[in-house]
Computed example of a mutant assay.
Amino acid sequence: MSDGGRTPAHHWFDDDAGPVVRPYAMTRGRTGASADHKLDLIALVVPEPAADDPGRDQTLAPEHVEIVERCSTAPQSIAELATGLDLPVGVVRVLVGDLVDEELVRVTQPVPPAELPDAGILREVINGLRAL
């Protein structure tokens, strides 16, 4: 189908920025990680020891490799990764879910406030230790 030599109405690239990859292309159309993973914004992503050089794995996308590399210096939350990679949170959740499935990273959930010890109990313990 010819467009008569006209420029298409939809550009898949930006002349200044270069090619643009749509977020759904990075996730292969998936909109969420597998149901096994709870990936809250404050969940911390920690690399597994086996992920010493993720760049050698030719099946990983560059975004996957960058996530593992960013987490290798210090654990990062999903929100921090999204900001650092300049990607939507949903895309980062899918990419991190892939890495969890590949056992290259693990995700640790923060302790919910309801499960934290009561400050009154902690004060009593401190007072009891001082009394010894």
Rank of each mutant, 00 (worst) to 15 (best):
T83M: 14
R28N: 02
L44N: 09
A43P: 14
R30V: 00
A74Y: 12
P8L: 10
D52H: 12
L85A: 09
G128L: 03
G90Q: 06
D14G: 07
G55M: 08
L99Q: 09
D101R: 10
M1L: 08
V107C: 12
A17N: 06
L60A: 00
H64R: 00
I126F: 02
L44S: 13
L95K: 09
L44P: 05
T7Q: 15
Q76S: 13
P117N: 06
D86M: 11
G32N: 04
L39R: 09
V89H: 14
L99T: 04
P23S: 02
L132G: 00
R93C: 11
E103M: 11
D52K: 11
T27D: 03
L87T: 12
S34F: 10
W12C: 12
G97N: 04
D15L: 14
L116R: 08
E124C: 00
V68R: 08
A61H: 04
P54A: 04
G5H: 11
A61E: 04
M26Q: 02
A119W: 03
L41D: 15
H37K: 08
G4R: 15
A25N: 03
D118R: 10
I78V: 13
I78K: 06
D15V: 15
G120A: 05
P112Q: 11
G18R: 02
V111R: 15
A35D: 09
Q109T: 14
Q76D: 04
S2E: 14
P110E: 13
H10G: 10
L39F: 13
L39C: 03
D101E: 13
V20C: 03
D101Q: 11
P110T: 15
D3P: 15
V100E: 04
V46F: 06
V92P: 01
C71D: 06
D86Y: 15
E66G: 05
P110D: 15
R123M: 00
R130W: 01
V111W: 07
S2F: 09
A35H: 12
V94S: 02
E48L: 11
L129I: 01
E69C: 05
A131G: 00
G97L: 04
H10E: 09
N127M: 00
P8M: 06
I121K: 07
L81P: 07
S72N: 08
R123W: 01
Q76G: 02
C71K: 03
P75Y: 03
S77I: 09
A119P: 02
R22T: 04
R70E: 06
L85M: 11
V21K: 05
P23I: 06
P62M: 00
R130C: 01
G90K: 10
V89S: 05
D86Q: 15
V68M: 10
I42L: 15
V125R: 03
H64Q: 00
R6P: 07
V89L: 13
V105N: 10
T59M: 09
P19F: 13
L129K: 07
D52C: 05
S34Q: 08
P49C: 12
T73Y: 05
L99P: 05
P112I: 12
P8A: 10
A17V: 11
L99M: 07
E103T: 14
R22M: 05
A50M: 06
L122Y: 02
L116M: 14
E102S: 14
P117M: 07
R106N: 13
V125F: 00
D53L: 01
P47A: 11
V91G: 06
